[in-house]
Nucleic acid binder design. Structure first.
Lengths: 211, 211
DNA sequence: CCTAAATACGGGAAAATCCCCGTTGCGCAC
DNA sequence: GTGCGCAACGGGGATTTTCCCGTATTTAGG
């Protein structure tokens, strides 16, 4: 009996290619691919549920973290394997916190993907040395110790607007707050993300998949 | 007789997955995958040459443009199909200018990849409507009309340093020029890339794969 | 010799950003 | 009633960025 797998990746060609590779593993069958969190929701409404979802972390619509959180809340039996281009520890910690059972890089070998799927199927999780080390490094960060997310919704709103060519008074106007409030958001976000300039914020936000 | 294909993509898993998908096409055989321009050079020294190279545009080491230019100069019989996450017209024009015979997005369907490979094999190129439209849009840009690259080496150096948290006097120090010279670089680069702020520069540089 | 391109540098000032330090009002829990 | 957290806002000013306008030297081509 093959294990049902679904893939969520906004690059359709890459999702189909990955499906092809996984079908070669024999014990797994890719039952559908979705290009967004929304499409995943639609697929889950109709089709048979997958046992494992391979989830691209950086998505244009709903982020990988949001999708993982949605799955944990609505389909707790579905196990998530996160797949990412980058290995920043913050994102890894967030994905695990949202319920991902493993985290792989797109630069890994197919055998590592296979092993991850096998582990998730048999043990329920795949905790590679790399993943564990990232979490250990996060132990010294206050953000991980806290249960609430690092950034609240207004800070995320600010970040999204800051990653544009708008000046701060224009951002304040769009957020319907005083320019002074935006100054406050900036300081808080700079501190939380460990940056000290707006271009640094843009780069860090892209690195963490916040935009 | 199968057409020999090679894949250049720094994400090994995705390259292997793509290889698997292409092998399903029957008329094509993936003879090797390379994770960088340098590894591609090594592979070409030893193995049989591929007829077609599928080349990821945004690479960490040598860029897709550089690799395409290298292939055109050293292996003019090898045809390049560019593969990218993004569809900005500047990058498309540059890839075609460097000799790419087609340009696909990673969000396309496998059937489009198949058609592109078929066209390149039989006709020598695959000019999709989307690609042609991008080039037409570029006709009104002065950069395309010019034969030399949009950005010279010093401007690229500046951009790389500007995509950091250094302030401009620190950048001037690193480039061994006057801060006023850096002011000049900034204005030129802002104009050439069509941005008006440093964070805009960071985003555009990332979009165009300049860093 | 003239012209153009490449590379470097400068004056001046307005606008924007960043930094450090505060206050206020509301909702909620004890 | 009190204290805390959250969200919003403010004073003040130093620093940096951006914009607009210039000049100078060297090299190469016609």
């Amino acid at each position: 009996m093959k294990t049902a797998v679904a893939i969520v990746d906004d690059h359709y060609l890459m999702a189909q290619a990955l499906a092809e590779l996984i079908r070669r593993f024999n014990e797994y069958d890719v039952i559908f691919c979705a290009q967004s969190g929304r499409e995943l929701q639609l697929q889950l409404d109709g089709k048979a549920k997958p046992e494992i979802v391979i989830l691209d972390v950086h998505m244009a619509d709903m982020s990988g973290q949001d999708i993982a959180g949605y799955l944990r809340q609505n389909y707790p039996d579905i196990k998530v394997l996160a797949l990412s281009m980058m290995d920043d520890e913050q994102t890894i910690a967030q994905m695990i916190q949202q319920g991902a059972r493993g985290y792989l890089l797109k630069g890994c070998r197919p055998s590592e993907l296979r092993l991850a799927l096998d582990d998730i199927r048999t043990k329920g999780y795949h905790y590679s040395d790399f993943l564990t080390k990232s979490l250990i490094n996060q132990l010294n960060q206050p953000a991980l110790a806290e249960t609430k997310p690092l950034l609240n919704q207004r800070e995320r709103d600010f970040i999204r607007l800051a990653c544009s060519e708008l000046i701060y008074v224009e951002i304040a106007d769009k957020m319907c707050v005083s320019p002074r409030t935006v100054d406050g958001y900036r300081e808080t976000v700079f501190e939380k993300l460990g940056v000290k300039s707006r271009q640094g914020l843009v780069m860090e936000a892209m690195r963490r998949g916040l935009i």
